[in-house]
C-alpha cells in the first residue's frame, strides 16, 4: 500500500496548479523511491515530468509499485478545499480504484477525508534522452514569468537567443516588437553557461503555461540545444522537480 504524508498541503496545491493547465489526466507512478508523473499535453507539443523523492514527504511508505490514474481537475477541487498549512496524507491500496486524501489542521482539531475515484489510463511513456545542452540559463522564476507574459502580448512565437553575452527573448507581431535581454549578474541571480550560441523559436502560450510552476521555486533553469526540445525546470524543495519540455517551431 501507499501512504505519503506532506507537512503542508500548500506544496500539493502548487504542484497541482503547475500541472493542471497543461494536462488534464495523468498517471502518478508511486514506488519505494518516490512519485513520478509524465504526460504530454493534448497537442503533443510539450511534455511535463514530475519527480518527488521520498525526502519531499514527512512520512513515505510504498510497499509495492502503484499507479494512480488522476483527473487533475478533480484533484484540484479537493486540494482547494483544504487550508495550505494543513498536513495531507495520500493513501491507496495495492490495486486501488480510489485515492484517499486526509487533511489535518495544525492543531489537529479538524480533519477532512476525501476519496477520489481513480481512472484507468493507458498512457504512453516517452524516453527522454540524456542531452548535453548547449546553453543553460538560471534566473529568478518571477523574472522568467514576467518575460513570458510580456512576450505573449506581441506574438504567438517567442524567439530565444543565447550567447555568452546573455539571453534574449524576442517577439514580433502586428503590435510591433519586443526584445528583452538579460546578462549574467555578478551577484549570481542570473547565470548563463554557453558552449555554443543558439537561437530557437517557441510557442509563447506554452512558455506562459509553464510559469504556473513559479510558486514552487524562486529559481528556474532553462536549457537549450540544437534540434531538441527546450527544457524549463523548477526544483521542488531539495528532493524533486517539475520539468517541462517544449518542441521548437521549425522552418516550413
Amino acid at each position: 500500500m501507499l501512504e505519503a504524508r506532506l507537512g503542508e498541503t500548500q506544496l500539493l496545491k502548487k504542484i497541482v496548479d503547475a500541472l493542471k493547465e497543461i494536462i488534464s489526466l495523468s498517471t502518478l507512478d508511486c514506488s519505494e523511491t518516490g512519485m513520478q508523473l509524465q504526460s504530454m499535453d493534448n497537442s503533443h507539443v510539450s511534455l511535463v515530468s514530475l519527480s518527488l523523492q521520498t525526502g519531499c514527504f514527512e512520512k513515505y511508505r510504498c510497499d509495492r509499485n502503484v499507479s494512480l490514474g488522476l483527473d487533475l481537475k478533480s484533484l484540484s477541487k479537493v486540494v482547494k478545499s483544504a487550508s495550505g498549512d494543513d498536513s495531507v496524507t495520500l493513501s491507496a491500496a495495492d490495486k486501488a480504484d480510489k485515492l484517499l486524501l486526509s487533511f489535518e489542521s495544525d492543531n489537529k482539531s479538524r480533519t477532512a477525508d476525501y476519496e477520489l475515484k481513480l481512472l484507468n489510463l493507458d498512457q504512453d511513456h516517452l524516453g527522454i534522452p540524456d542531452t548535453n545542452y548547449a546553453c543553460t540559463v538560471q534566473m529568478p522564476s518571477s523574472e522568467f514569468a514576467r518575460i513570458c507574459r510580456d512576450m505573449s502580448m506581441f506574438s504567438e512565437t517567442v524567439v530565444i537567443s543565447c550567447t555568452k553575452q546573455g539571453i534574449k527573448f524576442s517577439a514580433n507581431g502586428d503590435l510591433g516588437s519586443a526584445n528583452i535581454k538579460l546578462a549574467e549578474t555578478s551577484k549570481g541571480d542570473i547565470t548563463i553557461d554557453v558552449e555554443e550560441p543558439i537561437t530557437q523559436s517557441f510557442a509563447g502560450r506554452y512558455l506562459n503555461t509553464f510559469t504556473r510552476a513559479t510558486p514552487l521555486s524562486d529559481r528556474v533553469k532553462i536549457c537549450l540545444a540544437p534540434e531538441v526540445p527546450l527544457l524549463v525546470e523548477y526544483s521542488i524543495e531539495d528532493y524533486g522537480y517539475i520539468r517541462y519540455y517544449l518542441a521548437p517551431k521549425v522552418d516550413d
Binding site: S46, Y245, A247, K249, V250, D251
Partner: peptide
C-alpha cells in the same frame, strides 16, 4: 514557422 511535435524528439518507451 511550423510547430514540431514532442514525439518527433522523444520516442515511446
Amino acid at each position: 514557422m511550423q510547430q514540431s511535435s514532442i514525439t518527433s524528439f522523444f520516442k515511446q518507451k
